[in-house]
Design a binder for these strands. Structure first.
Lengths: 174, 174
DNA sequence: ATGTATGTTTAGTAATTACTAAACAAAATA
DNA sequence: TATTTTGTTTAGTAATTACTAAACATACAT
């Protein structure tokens, strides 16, 4: 039973939807990316609506999120007032972009708030056993976050995390 | 205005809750971990209930998830039929554990399904431009997932991703 | 100006997820 | 055997999130 390209595409898009949901993103997001990723040419919003079965509104908002993450790009054609969207195909670029996005996010605010705990304790120091214990634990967590942060920043700095870099990392970790 | 240890702890736990939510986990999960992380001794379920304000049921189910991820450990005392829970303090161990967990997860099933697309196309090959284009794109995605997978497996293999390893990685990426 | 093609915002609904309260199970103690 | 102490499961509720339908805004075309 020969599979049509249409069916193959649908399955692929379906798979990306599930992956998207797994990572905590709306499944529509994965679907939109999937449709764009399999298209040889940039697509206008209307066509994305057609192919995903979502509404204009949903596609409009979710594609904006995708663009913010650097996973899709918006372009225009001269003499055509539609916007056209295409998928980023350099996934390493996308990862970098996502990591960068994360820097100013709600997450960072929360991390920083946890870390403020240390300052507060410094300023109100009490020298008993429990106090010391808590301080030590919070500091350990801070150290961990800092290590992660260093790695993230290093990755951001790379222009390309191509195979050569991945290979290098694997070599070091061996 | 001197801050009590109790207040400091509450703020810290609150912060971890937000971080937890940011990563797509229930905020109660972060709270439970936070309480355990700041406790010098393992705590029984009842006390976690008290300190987080959640119900027994919620703590019971969420702590099981935390244990599955390797973020908390369950222990018992001889002659005491309570279970006691403590936080994993080696975060690198936790990361390893989470990555491992992920191997058999829904995520992997989805990734594999996407990759099956390639096999299906091989078996039903049609030699036209669009077919080739789609095939190429799907393959590029597979390559990316494979690279990620290699990295994940390398990390899992390390007994300790301590500073030495992080430093090494940073060196390579410079 | 009026109408048409686009994209965005908004207000409400559907679906999902986190959680509660309470029944239940199992095991130890009386 | 009945009672108490623990943890789990379940059924329902609250809160959140993803999405729809439709109003709106803008720019272009007539």
């Amino acid at each position: 039973m020969p599979q049509t390209l249409a069916k193959i595409k649908r399955d692929f898009v379906e798979g990306l939807s599930q992956i998207s949901r797994f990572w905590g993103f709306p499944k529509g997001m994965g679907a939109i990316f999937g449709v764009l990723y399999l298209s040889p040419t940039p697509l206008p919003l209307d066509q994305i609506v057609q192919e995903t079965g979502l509404t204009k509104g949903a596609v409009s908002t979710e594609i904006r999120a995708l663009a913010r993450m650097g996973l899709v790009h918006r372009s225009t054609k001269l003499g055509d007032r539609k916007d056209y969207y295409s998928a980023e195909t350099d996934f390493y670029a996308a990862i970098r972009s996502i990591l960068q996005e994360r820097q100013n996010s709600e997450f960072d605010r929360a991390v920083r708030s946890v870390m403020d705990t240390l300052t507060t304790m410094d300023e109100n120091w009490v020298d008993n056993e429990e106090w010391n214990f808590v301080y030590q634990r919070v500091q350990a967590l801070q150290d961990f976050f800092n290590a992660i942060d260093s790695l993230a920043k290093a990755v951001i700095r790379l222009e390309s995390l191509g195979f050569s870099n991945v290979t290098k990392i694997l070599g070091v970790l061996k």
